[in-house]
Amino acid sequence: MLLPLPVTKVRSMALENHLALATLRSGHGGSQQMLCLLKVVYLAYFLREKGRQGGEIELFRAAELALQQSISCAECGKTWSLSEAGQIALESILALHDQQLGTAPAHVYEAAWERLQRFVQSDVRSPIQAATTDLP
């Protein structure tokens, strides 16, 4: 089916994603916000692979690296934080993902979600880092 995601669901997901970034940026973030942002980065990447919205692979790598650095800080007892470059990369990913959510058919989103679930259950460290070349 080519039906889009329901508008209320798209708005709810986008709000959750943007609040996670704002909370992390303010220095009050935690593991829940981090998981939300990792989910967004990987879903946007998987939707990109399906021929939907573009975006350079380096943007995805920068966003993932920023999140990994924040996790490392938290593991050392520091606050969850993002570099300025990391914030910019994540803002760009969120904007891309907002567009994807608004335009991708529901079945394409569901396929990307299923890929995310398979990735989470696998031993693969990162689907983004594993990519050696930019996709067409």
Rank of each mutant, 00 (worst) to 15 (best):
L2S: 09
L3M: 11
L3F: 06
P4S: 04
L5S: 04
L5G: 02
T8D: 09
R11P: 00
A14L: 14
N17A: 14
T23Q: 02
L24E: 00
S26T: 04
G27Q: 02
G29M: 00
M34G: 03
L35P: 01
L37D: 03
K39W: 13
Y45D: 05
E49R: 15
E49S: 11
E49K: 13
E49M: 13
K50Q: 15
K50F: 13
G51D: 08
Q53V: 14
G54M: 12
G55F: 05
G55M: 07
E58G: 11
L59F: 04
L59S: 04
F60K: 06
A62G: 08
A63D: 02
A63E: 03
E75I: 05
E75M: 03
G77W: 02
G77C: 03
S81L: 02
S81Q: 06
S81N: 04
S83K: 10
E84G: 04
Q87M: 04
S92L: 11
I93G: 01
L94F: 08
H97F: 15
D98C: 07
Q100H: 07
L101V: 09
T103V: 09
A104W: 06
A104C: 15
A106H: 01
A106R: 12
A111P: 02
R115F: 08
V120M: 15
S122E: 04
P127K: 09
Q129Y: 14
A130C: 09
